[in-house]
Design a protein around this nucleic acid. Sequence first.
DNA 1: CTTGACTCCGGACCTAGGTACGGAGTGTAG
DNA 2: CTACACTCCGTACCTAGGTCCGGAGTCAAG
Lengths: 133, 133
Amino acid sequence: MRIGELARRCGVNVETLRYYERQGLLRDPRRGSQGHRDYGEEDLRRVRFIRQAKELGFTLKEIRRLLDLRLTSEGRCAKARRLAEAKIEAIDQTLRRLQRFRKALEILVARCEENEHDGGCAILDAVDAAGSD
Amino acid sequence: MRIGELARRCGVNVETLRYYERQGLLRDPRRGSQGHRDYGEEDLRRVRFIRQAKELGFTLKEIRRLLDLRLTSEGRCAKARRLAEAKIEAIDQTLRRLQRFRKALEILVARCEENEHDGGCAILDAVDAAGSD
DNA sequence: CTTGACTCCGGACCTAGGTACGGAGTGTAG
DNA sequence: CTACACTCCGTACCTAGGTCCGGAGTCAAG
């Protein structure tokens, strides 16, 4: 498929794909007759992965390192494993923080329902309440 | 406390605090004798909240809206509630995606342990495996 | 009374991650 | 044949979120 189709199917724009290529996140694909890039399904998965990871807060550099992981040798396996374990750690921390934040928001909603009008900074008070238990 | 102390205690730098002030995330505090900003504990909570929220992926604009929420009237309560509920929704989606990503990483680690050397893109294969179940 | 540590302010600068622009080639439909 | 859609490439531009710089004032310590 050509770049326009890939872009459409991934919900990004063409310039972004060319940008990802320059950043080393996408290989320079084989070119068709007119020098047009010709992509396959693998590239589709790749781009979708990139978008997903980006939304989860990974930088393009981190994403690139993840995409570059290969399990072709003992050494590479070990390296991949180390990186993956580190990312799992980081994700776990984010999950915990996000849960706590979520709890604060629920407390906030509950207070809204109680309709106790209070002049403080609602979100900070809610965060405090979420933390103390 | 003065700006330097606040910065130190929050792990950000002084310029950042002035920047937050310009962006409306921090009020312009009362000034001491030499025109120096004088902050209280409330500001400490505020800045810590901002950093936390930022790490979780919120933009400064979103954070500002959260900080501005007050429960001082029926109308404001309703508005706060709507915003909080929307954020909870968004967080839930992120939590789900993060869990799925985490699972992919665990699959990757497991494959590293099995030591089956395979030339594909390890992370994409792992994501696929995580998705199909 | 100088030196160092803070502070003030405004404005310039920086990185990440795109987005837009402009000129040129090609392919298909009307 | 002309129009429109798509592609190529390189460069310029944009936003978010800071970070740094320089000149000036103030205080406490040596």
